[in-house]
Design a protein around this nucleic acid. Sequence first.
RNA 1: GCCCGGGUGGCCGAGUGGUGGAGGCGGCGGCCUGCAGAGCCGCUUCACGAGGGUUCGAAUCCCUCCCCGGGCUCCA
Length: 471
Amino acid sequence: MVLKVYNTLTRSKEEFTPLHGNRVNMFVCGPTVYDYMHLGHARTYIAYDVIARYLRYKKYSLFYIMNITDVDDKIIERAKEKNVHPIKLAVEYENYFMEDMERLGINTVNLFVRASEHLEEIINQVKTLIEKGYAYETETGVYYDVTKFLDYGKLSRQKPEELSQHRVDPDPTKRHPQDFALWKKRSREEFGWDSPWGYGRPGWHIEDTAITVTYFGPTYDIHGGAIELIFPHHEAEIAQAEAATGVKPLVRYWVHTGLLTVRGEKMSKSLGNFITVRDALKKYDAETLRFFFILTHYRSPIDFDEQKLEQARESLRTLYNTLQNLQETEQADELTEEDKNLQTKLQQFKQKFIDAMDDDFNTPVAVSVLFELAHEVNRVIQKNKRISSKLKEDVSNLFKELGGILGILQKPIRKEAETEIVDKLLEVIIEVRNELRNRKEYEIADRIRNRLREVGIVLEDTGKGTRWRFS
RNA sequence: GCCCGGGUGGCCGAGUGGUGGAGGCGGCGGCCUGCAGAGCCGCUUCACGAGGGUUCGAAUCCCUCCCCGGGCUCCA
């Protein structure tokens, strides 16, 4: 089966073929760095992280760029409030963003590109658009004339003339209310740059096309972002780049992720209903957050609810329990009937997982394959009480390999908080408790277990002794 | 107003014309266990917002309607 990707432009799944052989160029709209990263961002960037991991797993040579919007009205407003320089504020939140990304295990981006470092390219692109007759200058800025670009609206399926409703009053100097800003003229007191049209700042959409044309050329493979960006942001990108370079398409596959909502409303900074990544990580570990998100297909909306996060945590624990059960199962040299059977099935599980991912990165189905595998493994262990050493290793490797695509199942069986002293302490407690159990002093033995449970340590008595784990 | 999505079991969530509602979470019963946990077996589960239509056959295609969300120049 070949990889199929849903393309927003055609509203259908298409076979994925990169423009240049094995090379895949992917660009994802990054954050505006004026506040902490929240779970809505996490959802999107985890989705693209999984996509990137899978593309590399499929042996594509992926070059993944994410931009950092560090020039923006919001940043300037916030900087004013806090009485710091906008760039300083942006750098601060960019650092927080990078920390959060790392903690979430999002490590697939090859290059982060700051808008502020590409003013030359931005200005050049605006110049080109004016020269080619797509843009015009007024006393307030430079604007893109959407009537000059016949394809305007092809991504969002809107007719430019119908875009008459506005939340913000359009600038009165524009030829048409739908025209969007490429350069905003500003007074010298404000943060900005010099340009052929005077002092000011770039418009919202121009940084992305200036960056992608610079690094990828006029056409590249995948452009990602959340669904809210289809219009106007991505529509404007198409208009800018295809007009400026004269080459279409700008992007071969437009990919959009569904939004994270809270009680039905979009999680967003402006609504104030957001949970920051750092707060979420205080209560749930990174793999749980990832697992929560990949349990739903990337294009579907997710309504955030802490109960669902807890469900995800329990669900992930089931997989880890299986890994632990496997690890603790006695090894044998020879293969039983069940071992042989499972050994041959491993390839099928792997193929099923890949088929799911090939179908527009269907992570919920891919995860279900992991559960089916876990189920089979547990059955064999349950029946035979032992497993061949080769099978044990193969199963364990397969979980690691497939889990690695999703960014889960990468932790050691016990948490990293484990230290030698904790381990030894528990050894002592378990030893004493088992002595009590031998003497049938169950009341005290149970009290020890219950009290440990309260502090987050679970004791489990198995046929082969007592084991412990963090809850 | 215009454009785009979505409504599946107690909950989450796959499935986009054809044997069984995948998988998970929760609950209940059984095996195992001193008990509990983990795991296994079974049940909870003949569902697809409503009403029409097309078809041998519709959750899936078409029409109308209801509800929810997103976008319409701030946004992952």
